[in-house]
Design a protein around this nucleic acid. Structure first.
Lengths: 142, 142
DNA sequence: GTCTATCATTTGTATGTACAAGTAAATAAC
DNA sequence: GTTATTTACTTGTACATACAAATGATAGAC
């Protein structure tokens, strides 16, 4: 059967998992009008004000060009602020962005709880760790 | 540290894994000018000629609208053929699509070998299975 | 037989994401 | 000090993907 073949392919299953996990995450973060990656970006910038675009992108594991687009949109929403210094683009939260921080944290906690409710806390954590390790193994192998 | 938080989030790690796994897969399938999902679509249609759009989409775990776009593009490339019968859209390989089948299969085998070389065959299989199970658990939970 | 509800598909629109090319700043070579 | 190289970032373009709305076809209610 065809389906069996597909099930044995890591590309395929990993994408499926990402899409399913994404549905939950998007649902949770939709409450504050952000998609999950944007929300995470804000958390990162909160922790490291004046972070450069490159560092931000690398922490989020997105391409720099993608980082630029995200920052662009968050500037339009008035949540972050970009100041270029020489060739560096430094990103910082605005007052409004700062105010959103607690809500984002709350969404995140709820999301984590939902994953935990589905998989069980121990198993969920183990799964996340397995997936993380696998992605790091792949990255290093390339 | 921020990075630690992100590493504990399934949404985040699953997307990372999907992107890393995708790089390998795209590289492999680029040789025949298709992206992995298109290639898989062709394998599925080969196995089930006159498959309906809905069934095809569901096997590939993509939304029906996405299925339509994919089929559109493959028609333009001359690899598949769509015949609407009543309200159903039946998809079949063209001669050209059929001829591509062996090459796709070969790419797939090579891709599998590459994953196996990186993770080890046993571990790679186990990983894929874990990821598959997780995505199914999530899907059922929603 | 008409009307309505349901189902399969497509299309409009939007988002996330990336690569490649372009631009601009910093650094190195000489 | 000018030229070449590298580095950081942005922009043009393109693709995968989805949701919601539109369309078209079947089936059921009466």
């Amino acid at each position: 059967m065809m389906q069996e073949l597909l099930k044995g392919c890591l590309y395929f299953t990993a994408n499926q998992l990402a899409r399913e996990a994404g549905k939950l995450a998007e649902e949770e973060f939709r409450k504050i009008g952000l998609s999950p990656t944007y929300a995470f970006l804000i958390l990162v910038v909160k922790e490291q004000p004046r972070i450069t675009l490159t560092e931000l992108s690398s922490i989020l594991h997105i391409a720099p060009s993608t980082g630029t687009r995200f920052v662009d949109k968050l500037i339009v929403k008035g949540l972050v602020d970009r100041k270029t210094e020489g060739k560096l683009a430094k990103v910082t939260l605005t007052e409004k962005g700062l105010q959103l921080h607690d809500e984002i944290q709350a969404c995140w906690d709820r999301l984590y709880d939902r994953y935990s409710a589905i998989f069980g806390k121990e198993e969920g954590d183990a799964l996340t760790e397995t997936v993380l390790k696998a992605s790091e193994t792949l990255r290093k192998a390339e």
